[in-house]
Design a protein around this nucleic acid. Structure first.
Lengths: 345, 345
DNA sequence: TTTAGCAATCTCTTCGGTTAAGTGCTAATT
DNA sequence: AATTAGCACTTAACCGAAGAGATTGCTAAA
C-alpha cells in the first residue's frame, strides 16, 4: 500500500522523467511538490518506493526513474488523461472531415492522423464483425488470359487478385466454377470455407477445370488474406526518433515486426477494454522491451468494434497520450457512424 | 591524364577504402602493390592524384579516400565487374525458379532477391511499353452498394479499386457507363484517356448517372495509378546498416523519398544504358549525398524494357556490385522470356 | 517523524600525455 | 629525372587523473 504522499511522489517522478528523460532526484521533488518537507524526507519515501519495486536508480548515486511496475501503478491508479487542446481537436476534425468513398480510406487516414497527433507510430483496425462470412465470389475475365478473382465478405471487405491462366479457359468454365463456389460456400465463415476448400471442393471442381490446382491456390490466397485482420500503420518513421544509441538491430527487429501483419495482430491482441496500456516487457515480444503500447477500441453500433493503437517509448507522457487516444477514438466512432448513416440507409 | 601507375594507385585506393572504410596510406599501398617502389614514391603520386581532385584527405595527416570524381574515374575507366560467385548464381536461380502466376510477382520478388544479394536496397520496375493503351474497363457490382472498377492496359497491367455508391445504381446504368468508356476510350494511350476524361466524357455520362462526379473521381484515380510507373522496393531496412552517426533526419528524408513513387522515378530517371552508376552528389537530391545508385535496364524482346537498381553507400564495392547487378539483369530477362513464352503462345 | 549535515558514490567533462599512423619536404642516391 | 631515406610535423584515438556536480544513505539531533 502506498501513502498519499508516496503516490504524489511516484506521480511526480513519472511525470518529470517522461518529460525530461533525466532521472529525478529528491531535491528537485522537494522544491516542486505542493507539500513542505525537506529533501531528506523525500529521500526516505523514495527508498520506500524503491523497496516496493516501483522506482529504481540507474546507478548507486543517481536520481530515480520509474520501473515497469512503477509505470503500471501510475497508469492504473494515478494518471488522469489530459483534456484535449483545442488545436488537437481542430486537427482531428479537419483531417477526418473530408469526403471518403471507402471505409478503408477513413481507417488508413486515421493511422496517419493519429501518428501525427502523437508523433509516435499508430495502428488502426477497421470495425470488424465477430466472424465474417463469405458473401460473394467473382471471376472476371480481363482478356489476354488474365482473370481477376474477387471475394466479398458480409462485413464489406473486398479482396482481389489477378492471375494468368495457362489453358484457354472458357467463359462457361469460369461461370461454372463461380456458381459452384457461390452454391457451396457462400454464407459460411471464412475458416469454414478454407476447410471445405481443402476437403470437398477439389473433387467437385475437376468437373469444370482440368488442372484446378492453380485456381485453388489463388482462391486460398485471397481467402487467407481476407480472413486476416489488417492493420493500417501510420508514422512508421517516428520510431527513428527515439532509436536511442541508434541500436540498429533492435530497430530492424521492430520494423520487421510491424510489417508482418500476423505478428502485429498478436502484439495488439484481442480488443479488450476501452483503453489499455501495455508497458515494456509486459509484452512478450522482446523487440518491444523499451516501448509502450496504448490500445483502444471503438464501437460503431451494429457494425462492430474496431481498434486503434499507438506505439512509443516506455518513457512517454502517458496523460497526454491517453487524452489523445481517448479523444481520437470518439471522433473516429462519430465519423464512421456518419459514414454508415450516409451509405446504409 | 593519368599514368599507368597513377591508375593503379587510384584503383587500389578505391578498392581498399570501399573494403575497409579506413583512409588508405602510402605505406600500405607500397606493400600491397605489384610494383617495387617506396612509400615516398607512392606519396608523390598520391599528391598528384590529389591535385587532380581524385582523392582527398580527411585531415591534414590522414591517408586518402576517393573523392566523388575519383569514384567516377574508377567506375568509368578502372573497374571490372567481378565474375559471379557460384553461390550467388545458385541463389538467384533458385529464388527465381518458382512458379509465378503474375509478372508482378516476379518483379516484386526480384527486388527482394537483389537486396538480399547485395545487402543494399533494391528497386525493380517491370518491362514497360513506351505508352501503354487502355484495353478494357469493367465495373463489377459486388452487392451492398459496393462496386469495383477495373482497368486493363494492353501491356497487361491491371489496376482496380472498390468504392461505395450512394444512390441505388442499377446494373443497366453500370453497363451503359462501361459501354461508353469502352466505346470512346479503349485504344487510346493513358494520357489521352485522362485528357478526354476531363473534356468530353462528363457531358456524355450524365445521360446515365445523376451525379457522375464520384465515379469520375474514382476512374481518374485508377487511371493515374495505372499510368504511374511503379517500382518495387526490397531491403528497405538495409539502409539502416550504414546510417553513419545515426543521422536520423537524413534517414527520414531518405525513407520519405523511397516511399514516394514519383520521387523515386525521378531519381532513377529514364532507362539509359545497360548499366550506369550515379555517385553521391551527382544525383541532385540532397538526401542521397552519401549514397550511390547503380541502375541497369533489361530487355524482354517485344515486351519492352525494364529496370533494376540498387542503392547503397557511396563507399560500396563497385566491382562486386556491378557484377551482381549485371548478372541479375540477365537472369531476370531470361526468366521473363520464359514466362512470356509459356503464357503467350 | 522530520530534518540538517556529511561522507561516499557515480557520471561527466576537461586536460595532458602518449602512441600510432600518416604526410610533406629535403637532401642524397640511382 | 626519378626514386628514396630520413625526419619534422600533424592529427586522431586512447588513457588516466583531476575536478565539478548531483544525489544517495546514514547518523544524530530536533
Amino acid at each position: 500500500m502506498l501513502s498519499e504522499r508516496q503516490m504524489m511522489i511516484l506521480r511526480a517522478v513519472v511525470r518529470d522523467f517522461t518529460n525530461s528523460g533525466v532521472p529525478v532526484g529528491s531535491k528537485a521533488l522537494a522544491k516542486q511538490l505542493p507539500i513542505h518537507v525537506s529533501s531528506a524526507t523525500i529521500r526516505n519515501e523514495m527508498a520506500a518506493l524503491e523497496d516496493q519495486g516501483l522506482i529504481r536508480k540507474t546507478h548507486s548515486s543517481s536520481g530515480r526513474i520509474p520501473s515497469v511496475e512503477g509505470y503500471r501503478y501510475y497508469v492504473d491508479h494515478l494518471v488522469k488523461p489530459d483534456p484535449l487542446r483545442p488545436n488537437d481537436l481542430n486537427m482531428i476534425q479537419s483531417s477526418l472531415g473530408g469526403d471518403f468513398h471507402k471505409i478503408d480510406e477513413i481507417i488508413s487516414q486515421s493511422a496517419t492522423i493519429l501518428s501525427n497527433l502523437t508523433s509516435y507510430t499508430a495502428f488502426t483496425l477497421k470495425p470488424e464483425l465477430k466472424d465474417s462470412r463469405l458473401s460473394g465470389f467473382r471471376l472476371v475475365p480481363l482478356g489476354h488470359r488474365q482473370v481477376m478473382a474477387i471475394l466479398v465478405t458480409d462485413s464489406g471487405d473486398v479482396e482481389n487478385q489477378t492471375f494468368d491462366v495457362t489453358e484457354a479457359v472458357t467463359g462457361e468454365q469460369l461461370e461454372a466454377v463461380v456458381r459452384l463456389i457461390n452454391d457451396q460456400l457462400v454464407g459460411l465463415t471464412l475458416p469454414e470455407v478454407l476447410q471445405k476448400l481443402r476437403a470437398d471442393i477439389p473433387a467437385k471442381i475437376t468437373h469444370y477445370l482440368q488442372s484446378p490446382q492453380g485456381f485453388l491456390d489463388i482462391f486460398g490466397d485471397v481467402l487467407t488474406r481476407a480472413a486476416q485482420e489488417r492493420f493500417y500503420v501510420g508514422g512508421r518513421l517516428n520510431l527513428l526518433n527515439f532509436s536511442q544509441d541508434s541500436d540498429v538491430d533492435s530497430l530492424k527487429a521492430l520494423y520487421s515486426l510491424i510489417d508482418k501483419t500476423d505478428d502485429i495482430a498478436n502484439v495488439l491482441g484481442q480488443p479488450r477494454d476501452n483503453i489499455s496500456v501495455q508497458i515494456g516487457n509486459e509484452m512478450t515480444n522482446d523487440a518491444l522491451r523499451n516501448y509502450s503500447l496504448i490500445t483502444a477500441t471503438y464501437d460503431v453500433n451494429q457494425h462492430g468494434r474496431g481498434m486503434i493503437a499507438i506505439l512509443g517509448p516506455t518513457r512517454m507522457p502517458y496523460s497526454r497520450m491517453l487524452g489523445l487516444v481517448g479523444a481520437f477514438r470518439e471522433e473516429l466512432a462519430k465519423k464512421l457512424l456518419d459514414y454508415y448513416r450516409y451509405y446504409d440507409e
